Structure formats: C-alpha cells, structure tokens
Computed example of a mutant assay.
Amino acid sequence: MTATISPLHDLTAPVIELSGARKTYHTGDIEFEALRGIDCRIFPGEYVAIVGPSGSGKSTLMNILGCLDVLTSGSYILAGEDVSHMDEDALASARNRRIGFVFQQFHLLSSLTALGNVELPLVYAGVAPAERRERAMRALTRVGLGDKSRNHPGQLSGGQQQRVAIARALVTEPAIVLADEPTGNLDSHSTRDVLGMLDELHAEGSTIVLITHEADVAARASTVYNVTDGQFVGAGTEIAK
C-alpha cells in the first residue's frame, strides 16, 4: 500500500492556534520564562511574519510552532491536532505530516542530488519510490529548478539551494511552510529571489509563517507579529499592499 500524507481539509478553521502559550526553562535553581502567554490564530492561506531581536523569544516560538519542542503550559493546535504535550515520536510524525521547513542553513545533503534532497520527507513518510520521484520533480519544477534535478548542492548557487529547500518543504503538501531566517545566508540578489518565491507560494494559497529579525523581510508578509520578552507587542499588524 502506498503511504499518503493527509492534507488540511477544513479551510475555515485556524491552521495554527496558540492559547496561553508558555515555555519555561530551568537551569539549576534558575528559571527563565521564554514565552509568556502568547495567543495567536493563523488561518489557511495567510502569510505571517514573526519579528524580534535576539533573545526576544522568537526562536523558542519557532521551535514550538515547528513541533521541535513542547509548551510548559497552554495549548497548541496544529491543523486540528493538539500537539501541546506530545512525546518525541508523535512530534516527529506531526512535523513530517504538517510542516514544511525552510532554514537559514538550507540543511541539504551534499551526497544527494536536488531531486534526492526533495524526496527525503517522502522517504520518511513511506511513499513508494515512483510516486515520490514524481512528486519531488513536480515540486522542483514549481520552484523553477526542474532542469537542476540531477545537480548536487555544491553545483548550485545559494539562492538555488534555498529554492531546493523550499521544494523539499512543499513536497508533502504541508499545512504550513515555516521559514526560519530563510535569507540570512544569502546575498541581496538571492534574497530577492527567495522572497519572490515565497510571495508566489502565498499567491498560490500556501500558508507561510516567516521568522525573521529583519523588518524589511517581514514587510513582505500580510500580517506581522512583533515579539518582545516572550510576548507579542500588540495584535498582529496587517500590512497594506
């Protein structure tokens, strides 16, 4: 039987819903509250930026949203699934089914071609080889790299490598694309290229959550949340286009 990854069906419900989200870290007798009661609802098709300087709590929030960590208290509903206090195995499953990651460092395997890198999430999901190759090729074509499928990361520019990472994020048809400082290692030309790609994906209906410390990058989103001391400063600000 061919494995499938279920898409998000209910387009009227939030794809992300945080309620009273708190995260506390303990080091010996020292307690540090990184998130201090965040509430947030993001709906399918939105393009949201979460902005804050180093130490603001945005990285902790990214780890929570990406199912890389769990809350100390509060709740997190991702595509209708309560992931607030899952164990590591359940979190890994939720990540692979619901989230497409785009990282600052690309995280491509140098030993694999562009096609092989894009296939990886489908390998982990147990998708049959013929189907995963077809879907991976479709994702690469979608980001304009269909002719680079046999190239290895070392044969691609930084902007092209990030496009491969975006294709890998899209191949599972995730509930959200979570982009963590996706332009942090790119020159100005590649930055415009990657941000343009995210704009196109949003226009096509993808739900995008962008984590950044750069206000000009955040301005590409439709809604911006500013994080300070583990809290949102005011409600999400809609950006006029």
Rank of each mutant, 00 (worst) to 15 (best):
F43A: 05
F43T: 08
F43V: 10
P44K: 08
E46T: 08
E46R: 08
V48M: 06
V48K: 09
G52R: 00
S54D: 09
S54F: 01
S59K: 06
L61I: 00
N63L: 03
L65A: 07
D69M: 05
V70W: 03
S73L: 07
G74M: 11
Y76W: 12
D82T: 00
V83H: 14
S84K: 02
H85S: 13
H85G: 09
M86T: 05
L91C: 08
L91R: 04
L91Y: 07
N96Q: 07
N96H: 04
V102H: 07
F103S: 01
F106V: 02
S110Y: 11
S110A: 15
T113C: 10
G116P: 05
N117F: 06
P121F: 04
L122V: 01
Y124V: 14
Y124A: 09
E131T: 07
R135P: 12
R135F: 12
R138D: 14
A139V: 08
L140H: 02
L140F: 02
S149N: 12
S149A: 15
G158R: 03
G159V: 14
Q160D: 04
Q161D: 01
A165E: 10
I166H: 01
A167Y: 05
A169G: 03
L170A: 02
L170I: 03
T172F: 00
A175S: 15
I176D: 01
V177F: 06
A179R: 04
G184E: 06
D187G: 05
S188Q: 01
T191A: 10
